[in-house]
Design a protein around this nucleic acid. Structure first.
Length: 844
DNA sequence: GAGTTTGAAACT
DNA sequence: CAGTTTCAAACTC
């Protein structure tokens, strides 16, 4: 990607956030330069002019240095009284007109050296085999979901332990959202191939070369996942600090870090209103750009020493020191006495214990994910939680954003840590992935995600396992968005709520997800979201954290009781979920454990060969497509459906025997159930209402029809499909199903009973969200593998089944040629205006 | 906790 | 690919 592009993206991002024009550019520039310095500590201008690699970027070194210098100049200017005059919301044109921007535009482009330095990078599982169910669905979803996943990817390494003050986190969230929208994020995502390093854009920094100073942990809160990051971040923060200092509102933003900075003597004071935002933004930027520090732990150790050069750099940037910082603010971080201790400029003793963990974490993640099994061990989780509580103060500092894909890794790490005494984390660092993967459970059962699977696997594991613990964090990102109430939390965040509000909002969301009756289920359902929220937004309140942990903590690990299948068949929930069996399981002769990894993988392969979707989430959620309609339908149950539908005969789809019911979704046209009474929605019994409704709506819809949209959507898109009528539920051909469409999942919607979004009407879906819901959250419908979508096509009510999906037969109901029908459907879809309320709940 | 019911998965 | 069997979860008592 070109530097210009990056800069532009940053500008856009910040523009959205109404931030000062220069902040992003400066931050980015400084960040890059810092990376460069770290990567090439010995480099000097004499050698400049050659193209260098920093992480995934390559650029002409000369330019970098110049940029750095330029940035410093600008920063100096900004620190002047005039800087306050910078409009909070600069038009893009202004940005482009800015000296920095112009300068950047003239620079040689930064290019992506390689999409992936290592397969671990994004923790994307290598989308190994096309057949891999997990891989395909997830993959697409990832790209689509701009949720935190991307962000996480970048920041991931540190996130598990990196605790940011809630304030910062909150503030940053919005930024993040915006940032994600930017091309930068996109590019990064795209660039990184599945296997890529989770680290994000700039992944590999040779730890050996890193000699730059590291800020103290507390101070580093800003997005420094790793020591390396810290180095970079320090300057940034220092720059920012001055501005935020004076603003009362910035209380959130200002933290003891400020204090620390002062100690360093670098902190300048700034009355600038934007300060708070600035900080958050900058930190976010850094976050985005943050690369995973080298995995190498040794390098981390080296990095503990503060680089004099860095300090000087900072000092230059910073101006007058500030003494304004409140002690009260410091109290915020009361738990960490460490912070205060850190003040020494230039000296950045890295905290051993927790700190080390944080540093190490990245490595673990990076190493583990993709192909290695994820340890879900409940015990491990528990330990972790407990640990977290005990060291809550520390955690605050360390906490970091969620890593969507890294969850697995995180879990592993946790498990690993728990298994081994906590003391020497450094040791962990060195541990190979395999080591992490090693089961720690007694029975040799480790509940972990199966190795070698694509994202899907991880997600699956996460969702499926309800293990709800820290692990869930990863999925969260996506899940959060989808599940979140109409105004997505993220949106709120971005919108500019104050940090506190943001935090609350997030928390609220989290809480909402918590289920109802089944704790375990709850965990499953709520999962990642909770953690993510916490992680991302850093719930400052201990109480809040505790609450969250409790939810998550409620052990809800998947466990099986298999007697004959050896847990190597889909009968086994653990296996089906892509998890190893764990101690809580009561299975006999279990082969679903790391000790039998080969067997497990082979079995999986066989099953997948038979049915590529065998391990895919059973519930498919319609997502982004809906968003196009301007509605956040993703979050509603209505937008989900069981991938194959159920075949219930006696349970009336009112018991968990029914997978639809269990998954918290209504039955659809894909179901072959008899006497369906699925409370989440039913395909039958609403025909009449639907028909009427459809008739009334038909005109409206047609008027609004957008052919282009329709075309773009593609015929095969499930969402676009109108449910074909089946024997049980005749649908009026003309009735554009869609009408109703509320936006959510079209499939569910529509006059036809099958498609109706009945779920929406349910009081609170989330409170009764079944285990499959997790899948919904995890996998947006759009992201559903193509094959899956095909299956989803509104076939006739007749349930013809293909090997994979079990239902392939084309619709043919006498409504006319399929093509015509499709057109009708398409039209309907586009025309639909989101109005969930129109759809009456189905009743039978 | 044992036994039954249920429906998905696996098999033929 | 339909029918049957196997399996384990869900459910009942």
């Amino acid at each position: 990607m070109g530097f210009r592009v990056v800069a532009q993206n940053l500008i856009k991002t910040y523009k959205i956030c109404f931030l000062p024009a220069f902040a992003p550019l400066l931050t980015f520039s400084l960040f890059i330069s810092s990376l460069f310095r770290q990567t090439y500590p010995n480099n000097d201008k004499k050698r400049f002019g050659e193209r260098k690699e920093v992480g995934v970027f390559s650029f002409v070194t000369e330019d970098l240095l110049e940029v750095e210098e330029k940035c410093i100049e600008v920063l100096m200017e900004l620190n002047t009284p005039n800087k306050n005059q910078i409009p909070a919301t600069n038009p893009l044109s202004q940005f482009e007109d800015s000296p920095v921007f112009n300068y950047i535009n003239n620079l040689s482009p930064i290019e992506l050296v390689k999409s992936m330095h290592n397969g671990q990078a994004f923790n994307f599982p290598s989308f190994a085999s096309p057949l891999s169910v997990f891989a395909s669905p997830q993959l697409s979803s990832q790209s689509d979901a701009r949720s935190f996943m991307r962000r996480d990817q970048f920041s991931e390494p540190s996130k598990p332990e990196l605790l940011q003050s809630k304030d910062e986190n909150d503030t940053s969230i919005g930024v993040f959202e915006a940032a994600q929208l930017t091309g930068l994020s996109v590019e990064q995502s795209e660039c990184s191939t599945p296997a890529n390093s989770s680290k994000g854009v700039i992944t590999k920094l040779p730890g050996e070369h890193m000699e730059l100073a590291i800020e103290e942990p507390d101070t580093l809160k800003y997005y420094c996942a790793s020591p390396d990051d810290n180095i970079i971040m320090v300057p940034l923060k220092a720059i920012i600090e001055p501005q935020m200092a004076g603003d009362p509102n910035e209380r959130y933003c200002s933290r003891k870090s400020e204090k620390d900075l002062r100690k360093i003597g670098q902190t300048g004071q700034n009355e600038d209103e934007a300060g708070c935002d600035w900080v958050a933004l900058i930190s976010d930027v850094a976050d985005i750009l943050t690369l995973e520090p080298s995995i190498d732990e040794e390098s981390a150790e080296k990095q503990k020493m503060v680089d004099p050069g860095t300090i000087s750099f900072i000092s230059n940037v910073l101006q007058a020191p500030q003494d304004n910082s409140d002690d009260s603010e410091t109290s915020y971080y009361a738990g960490s006495s460490q912070q205060r201790e850190i003040g020494e400029p230039g000296i950045q003793p890295v905290e051993s214990g927790e700190q080390n963990e944080a540093h190490q974490t990245p490595s673990v993640f990076s190493g583990t994910l993709p192909d290695k099994p994820i340890v879900n061990d409940a015990a491990a989780k528990v330990d972790i939680r407990g640990k977290s509580y005990q060291s809550s103060s520390k955690q605050h500092k360390i906490r970091r954003r969620c890593l969507v894909f890294e969850m697995g890794a995180h879990k592993k790490k946790l498990a690993f840590e728990s298994s081994s005494s906590t003391s020497s984390q450094s040791d962990h660092m060195g541990a190979s992935i395999e080591k992490h993967a090693t089961p720690r459970t007694d029975k040799g059962k480790t509940l972990s995600a199966l190795p070698g699977r694509g994202i899907g696997l991880h997600l699956n594991a996460l969702t499926a396992t309800s293990s709800g613990n820290a692990v869930k964090i990863e999925t969260l990102a996506s899940g959060k968005q989808e599940i979140s109430q109409p105004p997505s939390p993220a949106a709120h965040m971005a919108s500019g709520l104050d940090p506190v509000s943001k935090s609350l909002a997030l928390i609220t969301v989290e809480t909402d997800f918590v289920p109802f009756d089944n704790e375990d289920k709850v965990m499953e359902n709520v999962p990642q979201t909770s953690m993510v929220v916490t992680e991302d937004f850093g719930i400052s309140s201990p109480k809040m954290k505790r609450q969250k942990f409790e939810y998550l903590g409620a052990s809800s690990c998947k466990r099986c009781n298999c007697k004959r299948s050896k847990c190597l068949k889909l009968y086994c929930e653990c296996f089906a979920a892509g998890l190893y069996c764990i101690e809580p399981c009561s299975c006999l002769e279990c082969s679903n454990n790391p000790a039998h990894e080969d067997t497990v993988l082979e079995t999986r392969r066989q099953i997948e060969s038979r049915n590529p979707l065998a391990f895919a989430p059973k519930v498919i959620r319609n997502s982004d497509s809906v968003s196009e309609f301007g509605e956040e339908t993703n979050k509603t149950p209505a937008s989900a459906r069981h991938k194959r539908g159920c075949n219930c005969k006696k349970s009336s789809c009112l018991k968990k025997y029914c997978e639809c019911f269990q998954g918290g979704v209504g039955c659809s046209s894909y179901c072959r159930c008899e006497g369906c009474k699925n409370t989440f929605g039913c395909k039958n019994g609403v025909e009449e209402n639907d028909l009427k409704w459809g008739e009334s709506k038909i005109h409206e819809n047609t008027s609004n029809l957008n052919l282009l949209d329709i075309i773009e959507k593609g015929e095969d898109h499930p969402d676009l499909m109108v449910p074909s009528k089946d024997s049980r539920s005749p649908v009026h051909p003309q009735i554009p199903i869609s009408g109703q469409l509320s936006g959510s999942s079209l499939c569910d919607v529509g006059p036809s009973t099958k498609m109706r979004p009945i779920q929406r009407f349910r009081t609170n879906f989330f409170y009764h969200q079944p285990k499959y819901e997790k899948h919904l959250q995890v996998i947006p419908e759009d992201e559903t593998p193509e094959i899956l979508n095909r299956n989803c096509l509104p076939t006739s009510g007749v349930k013809s089944v293909s090997p994979n999906s079990k239902r392939v037969s084309p619709p043919h109901h006498g409504f006319g040629p399929s093509t015509t029908w499709r057109r009708g459907r398409k039209l309907i879809l586009r025309s639909v205006s989101p109005s969930p309320s129109l759809n009456p709940p189905c009743e039978q």
